[in-house]
Amino acid sequence: MRARGWALVTALLVVAILFPLYWAVIASFTPDSRLFASPSLVPRALVLDHYRALFGGRDFWTPVRNSLVVAGATTVLSVGLGGICAYALARLRFRGKAPVLAFVLAVSMFPQMSIVSPLYLLLRELRLLNTYPGLVLPYLTFAMPLTIWLLVGFFRQLPPELEEAGLMDGAGRLRTLWEIVLPLSWPGLATSAILTFLYSWNEFLFALSFTLGPERYTVPVAITLFRGQYQVPWGQILAAAVVATVPVAAIVLVAERRIVAGLTSGAVKG
């Protein structure tokens, strides 16, 4: 009885979450003429018009590529550098560790809105406006603290004896990190990579402020700028949203399987 109740609740939740997505996917295949005609759950005609327009007429590839580059670079840098940072904070003994951690957290607490203008001026001085680094660097300031906090927690719960065994076996700190800590940290690394990627893939404010032309627009910015003065191309917007969502959802699903596998096969304790 209880189990069935939970199943029902879960089902409702899943439907509530998936319905807008379903609606968007269906709508993106519906011709403009029918879009506002008679909404129905089961579509009558599916056409690729919007997608054709998206990639043919508008060159949606460019924002997709921009987003991939920026989000990818942010993720790699954030997990790479943040991972090393987190390892040091989790394992090495040095003065002022707690203040450093608190400071790192504080940095990520700034409301984004409040630092847009100073960052704009800074990036202009550095001639980084409308460049990939001009987005990646600001993203890192928000992504790294998150990564560091996640990974510090993760590294701390690995038994330190494994690393000590590595040291006794003659491996230096870096080698131990590479051959022993990293392989055991897959779930943590994957989680922070996904979160970072999602954050930078969806980020809007900085992307809008620090890019100046279509050649550097990221997906969210490009989609926003679809709307013309007199009409809003809903079909294309929805098609673009689907294009922006599906690959990410796929990546997360695949990675999640890995995370779960990593967690259960852990058996970290000797």
């Binding site: 590595g166 006794m168 392989p183 852990g266 304790k269 000797g270």
Partner: peptide, 14 residues
């Protein structure tokens, strides 16, 4: 160049 055997063995699980 010393070797240590830990109480928990600390074998590399992976």
């Amino acid at each position: 160049d010393l070797a240590m055997v830990f109480q928990s063995y600390a074998l590399y699980p992976h």
